[in-house]
Design a protein around this nucleic acid. Structure first.
Length: 573
DNA sequence: GCCGTTTTCGGCCCGACTGTTTTCAGTCG
C-alpha cells in the first residue's frame, strides 16, 4: 500500500528525535523537523507526486537529500537512515526527551555518568539521590525530574479546542479585572482554531508596574506554578490544562500577539523576511538596524514592515500563506455570518434531545433561514433510526410545522446509513420524497482503503444522495479516520454533483483542514453542518467555520452560504 | 540539512525563566 504523508512526516520527526539524542548539529535536526511539518501540511499525497514525477525540491524545506529520502520512502516504505539510527540509539533513551526540563545535553550527562537509558532508570537514580551530584544538576532539578516523571504518567493528552473555550472565557474575565490590565487576548493554537490544543496561551497588555503574573497565579483554578517572572508565568490548572501567560506593554501588543499566536513555522518565516530587510522582529516590536522600534502596536504594523497585508490567524500554518499574501491572493475566509442555514440535525424522532419546534426556533434565533431535519435511518438501531414509513410521517409533521413557522424553513431530510456494500439504507422512492439526503458511514469502519473508497463512491452513484456526512468517520482521540482515498472520493463527488460535509461536532471536525483545502482546489463545495442533537449544539457551527477557515474556504466554497433557492437548485442532481 | 537582490559557504529567530552557577548553560516556546 502507498505510504502516506503522515508516515513520511513521522519518519522525519523520528530521525530528528534520534539525532537530538546524539547531540547532532541542531540545524540539521531543525531541517528534519521543518520537513516533517511541510509534509504533514501538504494537500497532496507525496506518493502520487513522486509517481507523477513532481519536483519535490520545490517544496519548502525539502532539498536534494530529503527529496531523495521521500522517494526512498515511497519506493521501499522505509528509510535506511532511520533504521541505522534506531539500531544505534536505544528506543527508551528517546522517551526521556519527553520529560520537561530534560534536553539532549543533560540527557547525555545522565547516560554517560549514570548509565541511564530509560524512564525507569531515571526514576530509580533520582530516588536514590544520584542525580543531584551530577554537573549541571542539583537537589532542585532532581526533585523536578521526579515530579515530571510522575506527571508524565498521568498527562500526555491534548484537549479539544471546544473543551477549553469556557476556561478561556473565565480566565479572560479574571485577567481583565486586574487593575492596570489594558487588554487580554488568547493566542497560540487556540486563536488559530486548531481542532485540539496542547496548552493555552494568553496575552496581556498592562500598564508599567502592574504585577499581572502574581495575580494570575493566585487564580482559584491554578493548581501548580511551573514558572513565574515579571513578564511570563506558566501554570497547570486543576483540570490538568497548562496555561502560559505573557505580559507586554501596550506598544508591543501587536508584535507580541503575532509572536505568541504562531505557528512557530509561520513566525520563523516572518522573522526571516525581517532579517532580509535588515529588521529584527521579536515579541516587543519590529526594530531597525539602529535598534529603534518602528512597529509593534498592531499585528498589521508588523506584517506591513515585511511588505505583507495582515494574515488571518487560521492561515498561519506555513502552508503557503506568506506567498499568497505577497502575491495579493489571500482568501477572504468564510465567516459565521455568511452561513444561511444548517443541513444536518436530529430531533427526538431519532436520537436528538429536542423536538422539531424547539430546534426550528433555536436555528432561527441563530439567524438561519433553513434547517434540514436529518434523522438516522433504520440500520442505526442504537440511534432509533427511522424506517420509510416513520420517516414519511415525520416529513408530514415537518410540512405542517412549516405552514406555521415564520422566518425559517425546515427541510425534510435524512441521515441515511451507507451500508457495507455501498447501498443506502432506505428505498429510492422514500429518498426521492426528501429535500436533503445526507449519507453516512456508521459501521464497518475498518475496511481496506480500496473497499472503503469503493463503498463511498458507490453510495454517491445513487443520484438521491446529496451530501456525504462526516466523510472519514473519525472521532478525535478516540477513533481513527476510515482509510479513504480522499482524492478519488472528491473527484467522484465533483463528477456526480455530490457535496461533502464538514461536520462541526468538536470531536469530529470531519472534513479536516487539509481535506477542505483539497476540496477547494477541485471546486467541490463543502457543507458546514452542526449535526446538532440538541438546540444548543446548533451553535457548534462556529467550530466548523473555524476548521473551514483553516482550510482556506471562502464563502463561495461553502454550500450552505447559499440562500434557500440557490441551495435547492444546487441539491438538484 | 536547507538556502541564496549581502552568499554555492556559512549562516540558520529570539527572548524568558530556572537552576546552577558567580556570569551562564540548558531548556522551552
Amino acid at each position: 500500500m502507498a505510504v502516506t504523508n503522515a508516515e513520511i512526516a513521522a519518519a522525519f520527526d523520528r530521525i530528528a528525535d534520534l539525532l537530538e539524542v546524539q547531540q547532532e548539529n541542531p540545524f540539521r535536526i531543525r531541517a528534519y523537523r521543518n520537513a516533517a511539518r511541510t509534509v504533514r501540511g501538504l494537500a497532496h499525497s507525496l506518493s502520487d507526486m513522486v509517481q507523477a514525477g513532481a519536483d519535490l525540491e520545490a517544496l519548502p524545506g525539502i532539498g536534494r537529500d530529503l527529496a531523495a529520502k521521500i522517494r526512498e520512502m515511497v519506493a521501499t516504505g522505509s528509510l535506511r537512515k532511520l533504521r541505522e539510527l534506531e539500531h544505534a540509539v536505544p528506543p527508551e533513551l528517546v522517551e526521556l526527551l519527553q520529560v520537561p526540563g530534560l534536553g539532549p545535553k543533560r540527557l547525555a550527562v545522565l547516560r554517560d555518568r549514570l548509565g541511564i537509558h530509560g524512564l525507569a532508570d531515571l526514576e530509580a537514580a533520582a530516588r536514590r539521590g544520584l542525580v543531584r551530584n551530577l554537573p549541571g544538576f542539583g537537589v532542585k532539578s532532581e526533585q523536578n525530574l521526579l515530579r515530571e516523571l510522575a506527571e508524565l504518567k498521568r498527562r500526555t493528552r491534548r484537549w479539544l479546542r471546544a473543551e477549553v473555550e469556557e476556561t478561556v472565557e473565565q480566565l479572560l474575565t479574571y485577567l481583565k479585572g486586574i487593575r492596570g490590565v489594558r487588554r487580554v487576548e488568547p493566542a497560540g493554537s487556540y486563536r488559530r482554531w486548531k481542532e485540539t490544543v496542547g496548552d493555552l496561551d494568553l496575552l496581556v497588555a498592562a500598564a508599567k508596574g502592574t504585577d499581572v503574573t502574581a495575580a494570575f497565579v493566585r487564580h482559584e483554578a491554578v493548581e501548580r506554578v511551573i514558572s513565574q517572572g515579571t513578564t511570563r508565568a506558566q501554570v497547570v490548572l486543576r483540570s490538568g490544562l497548562q496555561v502560559d501567560l505573557r505580559v507586554v506593554p501596550q506598544a508591543s501588543f501587536g508584535a507580541a500577539w503575532h509572536y505568541f499566536t504562531g505557528s512557530k513555522g509561520h513566525n520563523i518565516a516572518v522573522r526571516t523576511l525581517g532579517v532580509q530587510r535588515g529588521l529584527k522582529i521579536n515579541e516587543y516590536g519590529v526594530f531597525d538596524r539602529a535598534g529603534k522600534r518602528i512597529a509593534g502596536r498592531t499585528e498589521a504594523e508588523v506584517y506591513a514592515q515585511v511588505g505583507l497585508p495582515w494574515i488571518e490567524p487560521e492561515l498561519r500554518e506555513q502552508r503557503g500563506e506568506l506567498e499568497a499574501a505577497a502575491e495579493g491572493r489571500l482568501p477572504r475566509l468564510v465567516t459565521l455570518k455568511d452561513i444561511e442555514g444548517d443541513l444536518h440535525c436530529h430531533t427526538t424522532a431519532s436520537d436528538g434531545q429536542e423536538d422539531l419546534l424547539t430546534m426550528a426556533r433555536a436555528a432561527r434565533d441563530l439567524g438561519h433561514r433553513y434547517l434540514a431535519i436529518t434523522e438516522h435511518s433504520r440500520h442505526l438501531g442504537v440511534a432509533r433510526g427511522l424506517d420509510g414509513d416513520r420517516l414519511l410521517a415525520h416529513g408530514e409533521a415537518i410540512d405542517r410545522l412549516n405552514e406555521k413557522l415564520k422566518g425559517i424553513r425546515l427541510l425534510k431530510g435524512v441521515e441515511v446509513d451507507i451500508l457495507e456494500d455501498g447501498t443506502l439504507d432506505l428505498p429510492d422512492e422514500v429518498l426521492a420524497r426528501l429535500d436533503v439526503v445526507v449519507g453516512a458511514v456508521h459501521s464497518a469502519f475498518g475496511l481496506s482503503r480500496k473497499r472503503q473508497t469503493e463503498r463511498v463512491i458507490r453510495a454517491m452513484d445513487n443520484p438521491r444522495l446529496h451530501i456525504l456526512a462526516h466523510p472519514t468517520a473519525r472521532l478525535i482521540g478516540r477513533r481513527r479516520a476510515c482509510d479513504l482515498d480522499m482524492e478519488r472520493v472528491m473527484d467522484a463527488a465533483v463528477e456526480r454533483g455530490c457535496f461533502l460535509e464538514l461536520n462541526a461536532q468538536p470531536q469530529r471536525l470531519d472534513l479536516d483542514d487539509l481535506h477542505c483545502r483539497m476540496a477547494k482546489e477541485r471546486g467541490l463545495k463543502v457543507a458546514i453542518s452542526s449535526d446538532a442533537h440538541s438546540a444548543g449544539q446548533l451553535a457548534y457551527l462556529r467550530h466548523g467555520v473555524g476548521q473551514a477557515r483553516r482550510g482556506w474556504l471562502e464563502k463561495g466554497d461553502v454550500l450552505n452560504t447559499l440562500p434557500l433557492d440557490g441551495l435547492l437548485d444546487a441539491l438538484d442532481r
